[in-house]
Amino acid sequence: MSRQLERTVRSLTEAAPLFAALGDATRLAVVARLCTEGPLSTSRLSDGAAVSRQAITKHLETLAEAGLVRDARLGRERIWQLEPRRLDLARRELDRIGDQWDAAIGRLKAFVEEER
């Protein structure tokens, strides 16, 4: 295995739990709220949610295990915030497909221009 490939496999293995953590509608909604509203307490995050506060707490802990969010205690409240670096990893996976398109479009360009 080439060194580059080894590096890729390592980064993907690292990304797998991240995708699993994001693969849930409630957790995605929580991440979206933390994205747009900034750090929020457990009770704020539970307001308006379709599931109980206990369920939200469990989802937040799953996200924390994947390194997507971090919590801090403020008095009796737990405040949650995003770890943007981990989300960037998900973004990079999409960039990889973009690279595949770049390669395919490069071949298309060579193909249609070669007759000139």
Binding site: Q4, L5, T8
Partner: peptide, 17 residues
């Protein structure tokens, strides 16, 4: 499905590289 993405990347990245 997000899990599918990570799994597929693992499988096909060698080819793409």
């Amino acid at each position: 499905p997000h899990a599918r993405r990570a799994e597929a990347y693992r499988m096909n990245d060698g080819g793409w590289t």
